[in-house]
C-alpha cells in the first residue's frame, strides 16, 4: 500500500464516460418501454453453477449471499407480471480478478416477453451498436465457429480429440474427463483470439452448457441449448438465454449442480426455492441476457484493463 492508494484508479474522464454510458443505456430502454427494476443484492440462496462462487455475508446472525446476477429476483418479478424489465446494478463473484474481471462489477440484465434468443440477439447488436461503432456483426452457431476455426464438431468430438487439439493451443499439464472443460480451453485459447474486432454472436451452445436456457433440437437433430454469447474483439460481453420456464426441470438442474459441486468438493449452499416456486406459478415465455457493463465501457474507451475504469478497484477498496 502506498500513500497515493486513496485515489481512484480511473481518470475523471473515464468516470464521466461511465456516467454517459449509463445514461445511454437507460435512454435505450426508456424508448423501448422496458422498465428499470431494482432488486436486492443479498439473498438467502446462492447461485448453484459450480463455476461461479458466491460471496457470503453475515446479516443479523444469518448467512446471506451477494448475488452473482439479478436473474433469480428478476424471474420472480416476471412471474408476478412485471412485463419487460431491466436491471443495471452490481453483481458479485468471488475470486474473479484480473484485466477483465473484478469481484464486484456492473451488470446490465434484461428480459423480453414472448421473444426467443434469436430476437434478443438482434437487440443486443442494437444496444452494443448504439454504444460503439461496430465494423461488422457476425452470427453463427457454436458448431459453426468450432468448424470454421478448428475443423471440429464440438457436439460429436470425443474428449480425447478435444484434449489433443486443446493441447496444441496451450501448454497444459493437468487432465480432465469433462468435455466442457476442454471446450472452454478451445473457446478461450484458440477461438476468442481469432474473432476480430466486430460483434460476434454465437448461439446454440452444447446442451451440457445450457445453464438456465431451454434446450431444443437443431436442424441437424442435435440437442442444443438455446443460449448465446456476444463477443467483441474476442472479449465476452454478454450471455443470453431463451429462458427455461419449466419449474420441474429448473428444480432438477439446481439439484444436478449440487451433485457436481459435491463431486468437485465445492461448498453446497441453499438453492433458490423461490425461483422454482415462481416458475411453477408460471413465468411468461421470455428471453433474457446479461451484459458486462465494465467490459462494454472498456470497448467504448478503448481501455484494455478494467481497473482503469473502476473508481476504486479491488486492490484499493
Amino acid at each position: 500500500m502506498t500513500s497515493s492508494d486513496w485515489q481512484p484508479s480511473a481518470s475523471l474522464s473515464a468516470l464521466q464516460q461511465r456516467a454517459e454510458l449509463y445514461r445511454g443505456i437507460r435512454d435505450f430502454f426508456y424508448h423501448r418501454q422496458v422498465s428499470e427494476v431494482d432488486v436486492p443484492s443479498l439473498s438467502r440462496a446462492a447461485v448453484s453453477d459450480p463455476h461461479i462462487d458466491s460471496i457470503s455475508a453475515q446479516v443479523s446472525g444469518e448467512t446471506l449471499f451477494l448475488q452473482t446476477s439479478p436473474e433469480f429476483f428478476m424471474k420472480r418479478l416476471l412471474a408476478a407480471g412485471s412485463g419487460d424489465i431491466y436491471s443495471l446494478n452490481k453483481a458479485f463473484r468471488n475470486g474473479e480478478a484480473g484485466r477483465r474481471h473484478n469481484p464486484e462489477f456492473t451488470m446490465l440484465e434484461w428480459y423480453r416477453l414472448g421473444w426467443d434468443d434469436q430476437q434478443l440477439m438482434d437487440e443486443v447488436a442494437e444496444l452494443v451498436g448504439a454504444c460503439v461503432a461496430l465494423p461488422s456483426v457476425e452470427r453463427l452457431s457454436y458448431r459453426d465457429i468450432f468448424q470454421r476455426e478448428l475443423s471440429l464438431d464440438p457436439h460429436t468430438a470425443t474428449v480425447a480429440e478435444l484434449k489433443q487439439i486443446a493441447q496444441q493451443h496451450s501448454d497444459i499439464h493437468w487432465d480432465d474427463d469433462d468435455r466442457d472443460v476442454w471446450l472452454d480451453v478451445l473457446m478461450t485459447h484458440a477461438i476468442e483470439p481469432r474473432m476480430g474486432n466486430g460483434l460476434v454472436l454465437v448461439y446454440d451452445f452444447p446442451a451440457s452448457q445450457a445453464a438456465l436456457a431451454r434446450t431444443a433440437i437443431d436442424s441437424t437433430g442435435q440437442v442444443v441449448a438455446r443460449r448465446f454469447e456476444a463477443y467483441v474483439g474476442g472479449v465476452e460481453l454478454a450471455n443470453g438465454y431463451w429462458e427455461l420456464c419449466d419449474g420441474a426441470e429448473q428444480a432438477q438442474r439446481l439439484q444436478d449442480d449440487l451433485v457436481k459441486r459435491q463431486a468437485m468438493n465445492l461448498p453446497c449452499y441453499p438453492t433458490d426455492q423461490h425461483l422454482v416456486s415462481a416458475l411453477h406459478a408460471g413465468m411468461p415465455d421470455c428471453a433474457g441476457v446479461a451484459v458486462g457493463v465494465d467490459r462494454l465501457l472498456m470497448l467504448v474507451t478503448g481501455c484494455s484493463d478494467i481497473r482503469e475504469l473502476l473508481a476504486f478497484p479491488f486492490e484499493r477498496v
Binding site: H51, E96, A97, L183, V185, T188, N239
Partner: peptide, 15 residues
C-alpha cells in the same frame, strides 16, 4: 504475467 481467463459460464483458467 498472470492472466485470469474465465468464460462467464465455464471453467476458470490462469494463463
Amino acid at each position: 504475467d498472470n492472466e485470469f481467463v474465465k468464460p462467464g459460464k465455464g471453467q476458470a483458467f490462469n494463463r
